[in-house]
């Protein structure tokens, strides 16, 4: 799925990965701000009946 270039390109790849990390972090932060966090919070505050086997 992902290909790491050999030897001399490893550092270039690392820079690309760092940029990708930054992009993902910003996307995650914005999504959390616009309602993602509150949605997960609401879900986490209830006892998960699926998890404990109650249908």
């Amino acid at each position: 799925m992902f290909e790491i270039k050999e030897d001399n390109d490893l550092l270039t790849n690392r820079k690309m990965i760092l940029v990708a990390v930054l992009v993902v972090f910003i996307a995650m932060f914005l999504a959390a701000f616009f309602g993602g966090f509150s949605s997960i919070l609401a879900n986490g505050r209830t006892i998960c009946l699926d998890c404990i086997g109650i249908l």
Partner: peptide, 12 residues
Amino acid sequence: YSLIYTGGVVIL
């Protein structure tokens, strides 16, 4: 937004 948030955490 919740998918981007949770998926983002895991991908990060």
